[in-house]
């Protein structure tokens, strides 16, 4: 593998409104330092892609953003969300996760009906009015482009859906909570091309109302759907810029090698 200077980086500052900012974020798995000094600003109502080779830390970084690394890793540094450091131990993590939702690599619907999948967390969050639940159910499924396919089968098991439908259900489940930010960890990597393009279309529509941060190892996908792209290498953020710049005018040699396929 080619050696790059990991301490050199190009991180652009965001002019527009920020949804989330990380300051000197460090992640340690035991003695293993996994993320080094991550300083990123995520613009509101845009799609930001995190790219990089397997094991570069992009999923680890993403999971910090709604505290899913609690109990798995030590995370130092600040994550600023609405002037609040959500990485602080005083923060109610359950509340954080209601504002910052997450969709995982493999579809993981609950072993419940489609309706229950969506409404379960809502009821738990104290929403009990039937009309509101119904309205959220329909709206989130529409937003996730799943409504037309399942509207007659809402009481059937979510496990009977295809992989692509399950993943869109998981997206719907997240957005039914009306989060601010949606984190997606390679949401299309287990899906076929048709399901993938449906998910991508869904994300394009969602970005009107949500800030989206997506980890992907599919470079075409990153260049197709994202507005900003961060390139990670061995736990360091090497380059962060608008997607157009990252893919066409990369500033760092490592980025250029990676996006042009000359990496490793």
């Amino acid at each position: 593998m080619k050696e790059y200077n990991l301490n050199e980086s190009f991180i652009t500052k965001i002019a527009e409104e920020k949804a989330l900012t990380t300051k000197d974020l460090q992640v340690y798995y035991g003695n293993n330092h996994a993320i080094f000094d991550a300083n990123l600003e995520f613009p509101r109502f845009e799609i930001t892609a995190l790219i990089g080779a397997s094991g570069c830390g992009k999923s680890t970084f993403l999971r910090c953003l709604n505290r899913m690394n609690d109990k798995r890793a030590r995370v130092d540094g600040e994550i600023m969300y609405r002037n609040l450091d959500i990485n602080s131990p005083k923060i109610n993590v359950y509340e954080v996760r209601k504002h910052i939702g997450m969709v995982f690599q493999r579809p993981n619907p609950f072993a419940k009906s489609i309706r229950e999948n969506i409404t379960f967390a809502l009821k738990n969050a104290g929403i009990t009015k039937k009309e509101i639940l119904e309205q959220r159910l329909e709206q989130s499924l529409k937003d996730a482009a799943l409504w037309d396919e399942v509207k007659d089968d809402l009481d059937k098991s979510a496990l009977a859906l295809s992989g692509g439908q399950q993943q869109r259900l998981c997206i719907a489940r997240s957005i039914a909570m009306h989060p601010d930010i949606l984190l997606l960890d390679e949401p299309a990597s287990a899906l076929d091309p048709i399901s993938t393009s449906k998910i991508e279309e869904t994300l394009e529509t969602l970005k009107k109302n949500y800030t989206i941060i997506i980890v992907t190892h599919n470079l075409q996908q990153a260049s197709r759907i994202s507005d900003y792209t961060a390139f990670l290498h061995l736990g360091h953020i090497i380059e962060y810029n608008t997607t157009a710049n990252v893919f066409t005018k990369p500033k760092m040699q490592a980025t250029e090698d990676y996006v042009s396929g000359n990496f490793g």
Binding site: Y94, M102, F104, F110, F120, A121, C170, R173
Partner: peptide, 27 residues
């Protein structure tokens, strides 16, 4: 019960206990 189920629960803001009793236990 796969860990993915627990993560799904946690990512929706459910507590450990709620995830255990309402997601994992039924499964």
């Amino acid at each position: 019960v796969p860990d993915l189920q627990r993560e799904a629960g946690m990512s929706l803001g459910l507590s450990n206990w709620k995830t255990t009793t309402k997601i994992v236990l039924p499964a």
